[in-house]
Simulated scan of single mutants.
Amino acid sequence: MSADLRLILFDVDGTLVDSQAHIVASMTRSFEAMDLAAPSREETLSIVGLSLPVAVAQLAPALSATDQAAVVEGYKQAYMQIRAEQGSAQSSPFYPHARKVLQELAAVDHYLLGIATGKSRRGLDALLAGHGLEKMFLTQQVADHHPSKPHPAMIETALAEMGVAPDQAVMIGDTVFDMEMARAAGVSAIAVEWGYHDTARLAPLADHVISDFRALPQAIAQIWESDK
């Protein structure tokens, strides 16, 4: 495989799509179904990116393992119900310019696009199908098969699948978990300002921070230009 191939990995929630209303509503329903006080919006968004069982454990550490598992299952059911009611394009719309930039990057011969997300396989499949992007991402790493972020397993598996070295890859995300995962895997990291973690927390961990999706191609080019 050509040494010139480059792997561009994306987080999903908070990076590609704005699913915060969907996530917060699902978490609220799952807690209220068990007569528990629901976490605040800020608390829920703080755990976006983690695998669901880890996220619930952080939100409700005093709950028994059995009750945490019930909240997890309740969240999954609520998430699917809301998606069925609204559709993916409505419940998890793309951020401005995201789709166009993805298409531009995918058109570059030596760029390979992939996903590293805390979503489940079922959740990611439904999202991509809802947006008609099933074939856009050549490697798709999900929570079902890996430890939760910031463990580097998702990125390491994507690198192995694509035959790309760490210095030929970049991770784009909106959370500290994404940035720490990238660092642990030895790949570059680009943080986005429009997601769910404060920019002040992201900036020290990122090679670049962007405030507009249209700035992404140039940020990627700068990373790889600096490696020459």
Rank of each mutant, 00 (worst) to 15 (best):
D125Q: 14
S148W: 00
M27R: 02
P53S: 05
R29D: 15
A219H: 03
I23Q: 03
V101I: 15
R201I: 01
R214G: 03
D212E: 14
R121S: 12
R122P: 00
E42I: 04
T117W: 11
S26M: 06
Q20D: 11
S120H: 07
A65S: 14
E193I: 00
H208C: 05
M154E: 09
Q81P: 03
S30W: 03
T66H: 11
K119L: 05
A38I: 10
V187L: 05
L59S: 05
I155S: 05
S88H: 08
H208I: 01
R41G: 01
R41T: 09
L50T: 05
V176S: 01
V142G: 00
G14I: 02
G195E: 03
L202C: 10
L50C: 04
E180I: 02
K149N: 06
A25D: 15
V164P: 03
E43R: 15
S2T: 13
D125A: 15
K135Q: 12
R183N: 12
I155T: 13
S188T: 05
V187S: 03
P150N: 07
L5W: 01
S211V: 05
A84E: 15
P96V: 07
V176Q: 10
M34K: 08
L52Q: 04
R201N: 14
A116K: 02
A55N: 04
L138R: 05
Q81K: 13
L50S: 10
L216V: 04
V72L: 09
G114C: 01
Q20G: 12
G123R: 03
I220T: 02
A126K: 09
G130S: 08
Q68I: 06
Q168G: 13
T28S: 11
T66Y: 08
P152D: 12
R41N: 07
I115K: 06
A126T: 10
A57H: 02
Q168H: 15
H97P: 02
A129D: 13
A57M: 00
A182M: 07
R29A: 15
M154P: 07
E32F: 03
L9E: 05
S91Y: 00
M162P: 04
G163H: 06
I47W: 06
L105N: 01
S148T: 13
K228Q: 10
V71Y: 11
S91I: 07
G186A: 09
G118C: 10
I172H: 00
R41W: 11
H151F: 12
R6K: 15
S226E: 13
P166Y: 04
H151W: 06
Q68K: 12
K228S: 09
A69I: 04
L7E: 05
L102G: 08
H110A: 07
H22N: 07
M154C: 08
K76Y: 07
I155A: 10
R214I: 12
F31T: 09
A25S: 15
R83F: 02
E43H: 11
I82S: 06
A60G: 09
A191T: 00
H22V: 01
Y111W: 11
A203Y: 00
Q77M: 06
D109H: 11
